[in-house]
Nucleic acid binder design. Structure first.
Length: 758
DNA sequence: ATTTGTACTTAGTAGAACCGGT
DNA sequence: ACCGGTTCTACTAAGTACAAAT
C-alpha cells in the first residue's frame, strides 16, 4: 500500500510554479485554440473507441491487447488472481454485515437522533427565549442557555449522553500564543474543557443541519472614499479628473501596480474593458488606451497611506484593534442550536480586480461591489432576522435548515455563489470533518479488496472499465484529485485525474534503470505543477499506450471516463466512497506509518518533532502541496547557519572551560572546584542541546523549502493520529497544533487516546 | 446522458501579528 | 522601541460532489 507511495522527490525539486515557468505557459497557451474543440474531440474519440470495443478480433488494437494478456498470463498473474478471489470473499463477509465497531455514529447512513433531543430542538419556544436572560440556572435541563464557546467562566456544559468520565479539574486553558508548555502532555485534555463538546451529543437527523439559527447578517465593505484632490490621474500626459465610479476602479488597478499581474496582457485587457464600463460617456471617449494612463500618483498615495498606517501611534492602533474586536463580537458569531458559534467569513468580499490563479482568462475583471440587494439571508424563521442597512433590502430571506450557510450572494466573475459559513471550530464543520475521517477509515478496511478489483479491471474487455481502473490506480497510488471537467475559457487550464490529457504524460519503456516509467507533467489545482516520474505496473503501462493510441496531445486520456462515472462506481464499492476519500485515506495512513517508522522514543522533544514534521512532509509531497520558497529563505538559512556556528564556538569555549576546571579540581581537590566542574559540565550539556536544536531546525527548514505542511495538516490528516502520537511520546500538543488548529481539532484532542489507530 | 446549479471542502498567499535579539 | 524575521490569520479562488433540470 504505502509501499506504493514511492515518491520521487523530483516532484518537488523540479516542480515549479506555473507562474514562474514560461515554458509551461507557452506550452499551454498554444493549446488554447485546439482545445476549444475539446468537446467535439471527445465525441469523436468516443465513437472511435466504442466501436473498437466490440469488433474485437479484427481490431489491431485489440490484438495487441490479447497479446498482452497472454504475455501476462504467467504464474504471477495467476497467483494474483487467486489472491484476489480470496480477498474478495473475505471482504464480502465483513462488508455485508453491519459494522461491529460503532464508529461514533458516523458509520454509514446517519442515524436518527433520539426523540428527546428532537423535541427540545424543535421547540421554538425555547429558542425564542434564547436571547432573553437566563432566568433558569438549571442548565442540566436542556439549554435555554446559550453556551458561549469562548466564555471561560461559563459553567461546564453537561453531557447529555455518553461519556461519563466528565468532570475534570477545571483549569484555565492557557493558549497564549508563544507559550512553551514544557510539561504539555495532559494539556491536550484540558484545553477544550469548558467548551461545548458537541462530539458527545447526538447528531441531527438526516439532512437537517440545524434547528435554530440566528445571526446579524454580513458586514459590508466600506463605501468608496474618493481620493483627495491633490492626487491626480493623468491620461496621455494630461491631468484628468475622473468620475467617482471610474476613479474607484482606477484605484483598484493603481493598488496593484507593483504586482506582476498588471503586466499581463489578459489582465490589462480585462481590466480596461471593465473599467470602461464604469466610465461616463465622456471619459469613455477620452480614455481609449490603457498604456496612456498614468496611475502613479494614486499608487504613491496608497503606498504613503500604508506607511502612515504602519507608523501610527500605539493608541491609534489599539483603537482600530478595539473597533475590529467590536465588529467581531457583534457580527462574528451566530447562534446555532443553543450555542454561540464563530462565523468564518462574516465580511462581504470587497470590490476589486479579480485575481485568478495561473493563466486565468478572467484575471483583471472587475469584481463588483456587493449590495444588500444581492444578499440572501438564511436563518430560522423564529429568529431575530438580521436587518439590512437603512434604506436597503435583502434580496431574499429564507429559512433552509438543510444547508449550513448564513448568507449567500452571486459573484459576477464566474457567476458562482459565495457563502458565509461557520468557523472550522463549529459543530457543523467539526462533525463533517470527523465524518470525513471515519469514511476514510472505512476505506482502510476494504482498500485491499478495491485494489484487487481495479487490478483485475486492467484486463477488462471494456475500454471504459480499463480506463476507470487505471484512473483509480492513479488516484490511489499518486493521490491525484478526481479531475472534474471545467468550462473552457472560464478558468485556467488545469486538470486532475479524469481530465488528464495525452499531452500530460509521457511513457518511457525504460528510464533511469526502471521499467515502465510514466512521466506526469501537468497543472493541477491552483495551477500548481505536478511533475512526477513513476514506475508503474506493466499492465498499466500497456493500457496507457492503448489509451493514447491515435490521439492528439490535447485529447483526453480517459475519453470514456469522468468523475461522475468514477464516483458512481466507487459508491458501489463502498458506501460513501468518492475519489477524494482516497486522498484522505492515503494521506492519513501515510502519516501514521511514517510516524511509526520515524519516531524514536529515545529522542528528545525537538528531534521527535522533526520526525513528526518529516512524516507530515511525506504526506505533503504525496499530495503535492507546494509553496513558493519564502523570499527570505536563503537569508534566513544563512542566519541560522551563523547562529549554529556561533553556538559551536560557544560549545568549544565551554568545553575548554570545563576541562580546565577539571584539571583545576584535580589539583585542588576541594568542594568548591568540584562544584565548578559540575557547573561547567551542565553548561556544556545545555549548549550541546541548544546546538542540537538549532541543527534540527536548520534541517527541518531546509527540507521544507518548497513544501507546505499546512494544507495536509488541516485537511487530510486525521487529527487523532497526531493527538495519539503526542500522548504516546509526551509531546505537548501545542508543538504540533497552534491555537486555531487546536480549536478546529478540539474533538480529536478530547477523544483520542494514545493508542488510537487510524 | 448531459448540463446546470448548489453546497461545501481544499488551497496558496498577502499582510497582520508576533517574537527574540539588540 | 525597533528590527528583521517567522508564524498566524483572513481572504477568497478553485476544487469536489451530487442533485435537479434539460
Amino acid at each position: 500500500m504505502s509501499g506504493d507511495h514511492s515518491h520521487n522527490n523530483s516532484q518537488i525539486d523540479s516542480g515549479s510554479r506555473h507562474n514562474d515557468s514560461h515554458k509551461h505557459k507557452d506550452k499551454y497557451k498554444d493549446k488554447e485554440h485546439k482545445h476549444k474543440d475539446h468537446k467535439k474531440d471527445k465525441e469523436r474519440e468516443k465513437s472511435k473507441y466504442s466501436n473498437s470495443e466490440h469488433r474485437d478480433s479484427s481490431d489491431k488494437k485489440h490484438r495487441d491487447k490479447d497479446k498482452e494478456r497472454l504475455k501476462l498470463k504467467d504464474g504471477s498473474s495467476d497467483k494474483q488472481k487467486d489472491k484476489h478471489k480470496e480477498k474478495k470473499k473475505e471482504e464480502r463477509s465483513f462488508d455485508g454485515k453491519p459494522k461491529k465497531e460503532k464508529e461514533n455514529g458516523f458509520e454509514s447512513p446517519f442515524i436518527k437522533s433520539e426523540p428527546e433531543n428532537d423535541d427540545f430542538y424543535n421547540s421554538p419556544k425555547h429558542e425564542k427565549s434564547l436571547k432573553r436572560e437566563r432566568d433558569d440556572d438549571d442548565d442540566e435541563f436542556k439549554p435555554k442557555k446559550i453556551k458561549t464557546e469562548d466564555d471561560r467562566n461559563e459553567k461546564k456544559v453537561k453531557k447529555r449522553k455518553q461519556g461519563e468520565e466528565d468532570v475534570k479539574p477545571k483549569k484555565k486553558t492557557k493558549d497564549k500564543k508563544g507559550e512553551v508548555a514544557t510539561d504539555g502532555k495532559k494539556k491536550a485534555k484540558k484545553e477544550p474543557e469548558e467548551k461545548w463538546k458537541w462530539w458527545e451529543e447526538e447528531r441531527h437527523a438526516d439532512g437537517v443541519k440545524w434547528k435554530f439559527l440566528e445571526h446579524k447578517g454580513p458586514v459590508f465593505a466600506p463605501p468608496y472614499e474618493p481620493l483627495p484632490s491633490n492626487v491626480k490621474f493623468f491620461y496621455d500626459g494630461k491631468q484628468m479628473k475622473l468620475s467617482s465610479g471610474a476613479e474607484e476602479v482606477a484605484t483598484f488597478f493603481a493598488k496593484m501596480l507593483d504586482h506582476e499581474y498588471t503586466t499581463k496582457d489578459i489582465f490589462r485587457k480585462n481590466f480596461f474593458k471593465d473599467w470602461r464600463k464604469e466610465m461616463t460617456s465622456e471619459e469613455k471617449s477620452k480614455i481609449t488606451d490603457l498604456n496612456k494612463c498614468n496611475f502613479s500618483e494614486m499608487s504613491e498615495y496608497f503606498k504613503a497611506q500604508s506607511e502612515a498606517r504602519k507608523a501610527m501611534t500605539k493608541e491609534d492602533k489599539l483603537k482600530i484593534k478595539e473597533e475590529n474586536e467590536r465588529i467581531l463580537q457583534e457580527y462574528g458569531f451566530c447562534i446555532m442550536d443553543n450555542h454561540k458559534e464563530r462565523i468564518a467569513n462574516f465580511r462581504i468580499e470587497p470590490p476589486g480586480l479579480f485575481r485568478g490563479r495561473g493563466d486565468h482568462p478572467k484575471m483583471g475583471m472587475l469584481k463588483r461591489r456587493i449590495r444588500p440587494e444581492d444578499i440572501i439571508i438564511n436563518c430560522s424563521k423564529d429568529s431575530k432576522h438580521p436587518k439590512p442597512p437603512p434604506g436597503t433590502k435583502w434580496k431574499e430571506v429564507r429559512h433552509d435548515n438543510k444547508v449550513t450557510w448564513l448568507v449567500s450572494w452571486t459573484e459576477n466573475i464566474q457567476g458562482s455563489i459565495k457563502y458565509i459559513m461557520l468557523n472550522p471550530s463549529s459543530r457543523i464543520k467539526g462533525e463533517k470533518d470527523w465524518q470525513k475521517y471515519e469514511t476514510a477509515r472505512r476505506l482502510k478496511k476494504c482498500v485491499e479488496r478495491i485494489r484487487a478489483q481495479y487490478r483485475e479491471d486492467w484486463k477488462s474487455k471494456e475500454m471504459r472499465i480499463r480506463q476507470r481502473a487505471v484512473a483509480l490506480y492513479f488516484i490511489d497510488k499518486l493521490a491525484l484529485r478526481a479531475g472534474n471537467e471545467k468550462e473552457e475559457g472560464e478558468t485556467a487550464d488545469t486538470v486532475g485525474c479524469c481530465s488528464l490529457r495525452v499531452e500530460h504524460l509521457s511513457l518511457h519503456q525504460e528510464m533511469d534503470g526502471q521499467e515502465y516509467v510514466v512521466e506526469f507533467d501537468f497543472l493541477g489545482k491552483d495551477s500548481i505543477r505536478y511533475y512526477n516520474k513513476v514506475p508503474v505496473e506493466k499492465r498499466v503501462f500497456k493500457n496507457l499506450q492503448l489509451f493514447m493510441e491515435d490521439k492528439e496531445p490535447e485529447d483526453d486520456l480517459f475519453d470514456r471516463l469522468n468523475t461522475s462515472i468514477l464516483n458512481k462506481h466507487l459508491q458501489e464499492l463502498m458506501d460513501g466512497l468518492t475519489a477524494k476519500v482516497f486522498r484522505t485515506y492515503n494521506a492519513s495512513i501515510t502519516l501514521q506509518q511514517q510516524l511509526n517508522e520515524l519516531t524514536n522514543s529515545e529522542d528528545n522533544v525537538p528531534a521527535k518533532i522533526l520526525s513528526y514534521n518529516r512524516a507530515n512532509r511525506a504526506v505533503a509531497i504525496l499530495c503535492n502541496h507546494q509553496r513558493a520558497p519564502p523570499k527570505t529563505f536563503e537569508k534566513s538559512m544563512q542566519n541560522l547557519q551563523t547562529k549554529i556556528d556561533a553556538k559551536k564556538e560557544q560549545l568549544a569555549d565551554a568545553k575548554r572551560e570545563m576541562k580546565s576546571a577539571k584539571a583545576d579540581a584535580k589539583i585542588r581537590r576541594d568542594e568548591k572546584s568540584k562544584k565548578t566542574v559540575e557547573t561547567k559540565k551542565k553548561a556544556v550539556q545545555r549548549i550541546e542541546e541548544q546546538l542540537m536544536k538549532l541543527e534540527v531546525q536548520a534541517t527541518d527548514r531546509e527540507e521544507n523549502k518548497q513544501i507546505a505542511l499546512g494544507t495536509s495538516k488541516l485537511n487530510y490528516l486525521d487529527p487523532r493520529i497526531s493527538v495519539a502520537w503526542c500522548k504516546k511520546f509526551g509531546i505537548p500538543i501545542e508543538k504540533i497544533y497552534n491555537k486555531t488548529q487546536r480549536e478546529k481539532f478540539a474533538w480529536a484532542i478530547d477523544m483520542a487516546e494514545k493508542d488510537f489507530e487510524f
